[in-house]
Simulated scan of single mutants.
Amino acid sequence: MLSTAKHPLTLSNIVSDFKEITKMRLSLSVVFSSVAGYLLGAYSIDITTIILLCFGGYFMVGASNAYNQIIERDLDALMNRTKNRPIPAGRMQVSTAFTIAVTFTVLGIIALYIINPRTAMYGAISIFLYTSVYTPLKTKTPFAVFVGAIPGAIPFMLGWVAARDQFGIEPGTLFALQFFWQFPHFWAIGWLLYDDYKKGGFLMLPTKKQDKGTALQIIAYTIWTIIVSVLPAFGITGDLKLSIVAAIIVLALGLVMLYYAFELFKKRSTQAAKQLMLSSVLYITLLQIVYVIDKFI
């Protein structure tokens, strides 16, 4: 760790930088998805497994984020939203960040392996794809978002695998749901932060522009997300089921997100992109809550 005149080496600042290097808020949202998937797949609730899943999921995502910030430290320094991150701002050495990343990787794999080896395998695949494939591709091709959507879709599925120690139609559906959802979500972010991403050379939009082509693809993937979200109500996704009432609620949530996708198509403004981004976060959070509540009532 380093200290600066503007950022003295205090416990508060160390904790703040630790939260930033591991992206604590994002990591906790991933943990939430994993636990939701576990609750959907579990025959009976095992508190030890939930605790291991929480720690394992947080460690794996935190490690991915730390590796990402090490690799992109020079590009982060060019963008307003990332230039104050610990490494580009000079508050944390690369060696410190790397130690955190490696430690989190090892602890994450161990925690998930204790649950079952299959869960650890998917966690390791997630960290590999995010760090070694998605991160390098971000400055080369918009296809990076497709690659990044794979590790991003694993957490919801991971929880089910932790509960059942098997992969099938149920975790596959959870994976597909979060996979398709990520396109409107991240393209909305890419649109909102277009100018900043451009400074870093990141190609986050499918057409590389804030145009109708990008907006149309956002609408298309939003529709796919909605379709997958209601599939469990038709009895074709194995043990993953959804009541008619829950399906109607989920459909309504999806239509709200679709409304904002059309608003982005019509207005093509950063404000519309922000509204879509916020609605997408609300959608996936409430959907997972509805899925879990519907199972237990």
Rank of each mutant, 00 (worst) to 15 (best):
N13A: 15
N13P: 12
F18C: 13
F18Q: 09
E20N: 12
I21E: 04
I21Q: 04
T22K: 00
K23Q: 06
K23Y: 05
K23M: 04
M24K: 00
M24G: 05
M24E: 03
M24W: 01
R25I: 02
L26T: 10
S27E: 01
S27D: 00
S27F: 01
S27Q: 00
V30A: 13
F32I: 03
S33T: 07
S34Y: 07
S34K: 09
V35P: 12
A36G: 09
G37L: 03
L39H: 14
L40C: 00
G41R: 14
G41C: 04
G41N: 11
A42G: 10
Y43R: 15
S44L: 07
S44E: 15
S44F: 11
I45A: 08
I45V: 14
T48F: 11
I50F: 13
I50T: 08
I51R: 12
C54Y: 15
G57M: 05
G57A: 09
Y58M: 03
F59C: 10
V61R: 00
G62E: 02
G62I: 04
G62F: 04
A63H: 07
S64Y: 01
S64C: 09
N68Y: 09
I70D: 03
I70N: 01
I70Y: 03
I71V: 09
E72P: 02
D74H: 13
L75V: 05
D76S: 08
D76E: 14
D76F: 14
D76W: 03
A77C: 06
L78N: 09
T82F: 08
T82S: 15
R85C: 09
I87G: 04
I87N: 01
I87F: 13
P88K: 15
P88S: 12
